[in-house]
Design a protein around this nucleic acid. Sequence first.
DNA 1: TAGTGGTCTAGACCACTCG
DNA 2: GAGTGGTCTAGACCACTAG
Lengths: 253, 253
Amino acid sequence: MPATKPPAPPADSAAAPRYRWLADELLQTIERGSFADNQALPSERELAETYEVSRDTVRKAVRYLEERGVLYSDHGRGTFVEPSIVRNMSRFLDSFSVDTAARGGLPGQKVLAIEPAAASMAVAGLLGLRPGEALLRIKRTRLINGQPVGLQDALLPASIGQGIDRAALEAAGSLYRLLQEKGIVPAEAIENLTAAAADSEDAELLGVPRGTPLLVCERVTLSERREPIEYCLMKYVPSYRYSTRINRHSNAL
Amino acid sequence: MPATKPPAPPADSAAAPRYRWLADELLQTIERGSFADNQALPSERELAETYEVSRDTVRKAVRYLEERGVLYSDHGRGTFVEPSIVRNMSRFLDSFSVDTAARGGLPGQKVLAIEPAAASMAVAGLLGLRPGEALLRIKRTRLINGQPVGLQDALLPASIGQGIDRAALEAAGSLYRLLQEKGIVPAEAIENLTAAAADSEDAELLGVPRGTPLLVCERVTLSERREPIEYCLMKYVPSYRYSTRINRHSNAL
DNA sequence: TAGTGGTCTAGACCACTCG
DNA sequence: GAGTGGTCTAGACCACTAG
């Protein structure tokens, strides 16, 4: 029996599901460097025995880590550790603040305007409103380490923007955090990216010459109930990079 | 017994797993318009009975459709149809040709160069090679309905590029299709996006003025075995749009 | 409280990969 | 052929949401 590492059966009391606990366990093992890139993990049956869970629970844990870009598995071969380029590439919906912090930057914001607005036809369509309905507009510059890197112009249905003011937003530091405190949880978003030249307003706010190419991202965010929460138009300076991970997978579970 | 729609138990012979068959079945029902946006599906237990499969198989099918942006489920509430804005937003790794066709455009390409090259330090790092190792460089303009919309400059390890020439590429219409015929299957990719101004070469090839803002996308594609297949630098004209779907599943804030 | 999805189990068999 | 992941089942209980 290995004395140093008792496999530690899951705590049967607390809130975390077993497969999640296992996933954490495996993740820590990997991050501790016990497995090289592309190295095979023990087989599912073996892991099930070691950690004293059912094979199905092991599969859930593995699948969880696959979604997060930590593991991948191949039919008759085994389960492997994703190469480090792929690992920790989140592919989830983070707020600017969380994302920036994860990259080792200090996120910040400067609130330019919080004001009522009326829905245009285009925005009404996206937010499921009628043209002219009341919106709250929040315009900010986003900063990394004090430097402006992006402009965000968000439009929320008035019902959702209710009670949001400059003070609250600056205190929360993140619009998503503020919404979450109100029980509105962003669950999904669709995004659309292009490039465009900075107009004179963009240029001034971002401190770049007019005509500078910007990464333009439109986003519609939906709640858990799939009610539109926000339409946001974002423009980023060329030094800002947007990363994703995509997988082909016609397979699933 | 409903006469019009016999629930049809799965064909027990052919190649498709049962949950996949169920998923297709459900997808067709949805696309036929039998369910409105955000409408609840029958419960898992009910579906299991109707389609004569186990509840777990139903759950796998639902999971499969969740990944594809067709369904979402909420704990105590039920399983629902994603609103149409979200549905069919693929989030998978398609070749330019497949993606363009899916958007209703006619994809095309003009091969500018296929030539040997040597790995720079930067590219060597990404492709897991040593600087100076042999590469195949494939430079193309990509067309939609005959109009140039993007420039792709791909670098493949010589071992993978082996045997690729202009004729083969033009015949296949797509690099991915050509690789697939050779048994090399792209499984995953990581991407990095920014904006940049068109230099004079870009401008000429894309038929836009110098300085036009372009959407720049770097991509590293990995095989099923997670061997680097390709590093590709892509530059797209502002009219081209890059779409994604992101979800915020069960991660911590 | 009734109904829903979420977790977990134990066991069986299939499909694939590789020596 | 031995070992791996993939599919499927049947049943149990928990956690959440609603009327």
